[in-house]
Design a protein around this nucleic acid. Structure first.
Lengths: 229, 229
DNA sequence: TTAAATATATACTTGACATATATTGTATGG
DNA sequence: CCATACAATATATGTCAAGTATATATTTAA
């Protein structure tokens, strides 16, 4: 039996702590795209030794959040048109795959998490808390991905989501579209999330796939408009 | 200008060396599923320090080739029915995705590599060199995945392929089906590979997708028969 | 069978060294 | 005088070694 402490603090490794913290700073653009991440600096900033820092950087590299240039430098991955295109292309393939797989699985265990995340998204929008919005939205899509019960797909979507989260921070921080306002966008997101849960419960494969792809498009159009501006 | 040595030996890091060597031993079932991999042992066996060994084990864990039990042990990932099912499910989603993406890309640069790997597969079959067969087949499918020009998909398929390679070694090492012989299986593989290249060149999306999924099925059926025996 | 004590391997730290890369500085040629 | 190429330097990374603390697994005892 583990001590009660473990319930709230699963005694995560320092490597995991470093990953989370650097991840957060990259996501929130505190560490800007292209910026160099030096081990010594990170050690000082996070108060953590070199071993877990290097471990975290390796994992971030696996997740395509940083680029590793051996013997030279680790830099925050630049945001480019090409990368963004590839991100959305992968997103469509994988989310559609989730739908196909989820329809052949028992997924009732995932629903509470999905609905909790959905609720958190709505609350964050109501409070206009962008950081929490992106994180709750990330949890929602992670829970959705897990409906595939396929660790490969879940893992790959995690990496794609690292990038979409960064894009979300980028675009939500700026009002970019005078016609179709941010509020209108949020309403679309909420409506689509609700529809996703609804069709998932009904196991309506065609409508679910259509909704998911539309949901990706809703976001993609926003990003395209952002990058064009 | 780099020394001539770099052309053949790109001066890979010891971490990469360790990864490759442990990967090879897992793939060839020299390290058996479930077997524990101790750092000290690996250090002695490979003559490499602890840092790159740990780095390699982390990457192998990312690739689902080993399971990491923090503070306890790293073990070679067991081969189970469930994992195998998930592997093939992901394979079908991702390979179909590759087809969709490849059809909208300029992929002529990938064709030489595809054809070279295909040739190597045929040669390995002719020589009945199972190790080279699996590796050449792996290169073929890696080249095919790269036709998507999508690093997320390529990366995910790499992980899936780690598992399918292991399954291939497992099944090719044993004659398991008296009716449908190993030679018949090889002939199917060769025919399907040829068709894949052919339809890729012709950009015949429907036929390519059909062929790829059939190719996956050809292998899956063999594995199912193997596991049933 | 459960619980306590022990042993071992991992997670992490510190310090050090070699090397590859980037940077600076120098020299040569246009 | 400027630009290019080359040489020297500095710095950060890759790797090793040794040691500490701790968590897990194992053994022992109850």
């Amino acid at each position: 039996m583990r001590p009660a402490l473990s319930i709230t603090e699963p005694k995560q490794s320092l490597g995991a702590v470093a990953y989370r913290e650097i991840y957060r700073r990259i996501m929130t653009l505190d560490f800007e795209p292209g910026q160099r991440l030096e081990e010594k600096r990170l050690m000082a900033q996070l108060g953590i030794g070199r071993t877990p820092i290097r471990e975290a950087l390796m994992h971030l590299s696996d997740d395509f959040m940083v680029e590793s240039h051996p013997k030279a430098a680790v830099i925050v991955r630049p945001i480019t048109i090409q990368n963004t295109r590839a991100t959305f292309a992968a997103l469509k393939v994988l989310e559609a795959g989730v739908v196909e797989l989820a329809m052949r699985q028992e997924i009732s265990a995932m629903l509470p998490e999905l609905e909790a995340a959905n609720h958190a998204v709505k609350a964050a929008i109501a409070r206009m808390d962008i950081i929490e919005l992106v994180e709750a939205n990330s949890r929602f899509h992670h829970a959705f991905a897990r409906c595939s019960l396929n660790e490969y797909i879940v893992n790959c979507l995690h990496k794609v989501r690292c990038e979409t989260n960064r894009l979300a921070y980028l675009s939500y921080g700026n009002e970019i579209d005078p016609d179709r306002s941010l509020q209108t966008h949020y309403r679309s997101v909420i409506r689509e999330h609700d529809t996703i849960i609804e069709t998932l419960k009904k196991r309506d494969e065609n409508r679910l796939k259509k909704t998911i792809l539309q949901h990706v498009n809703t976001f993609q159009q926003r990003i395209i408009r952002y990058m064009a501006s």
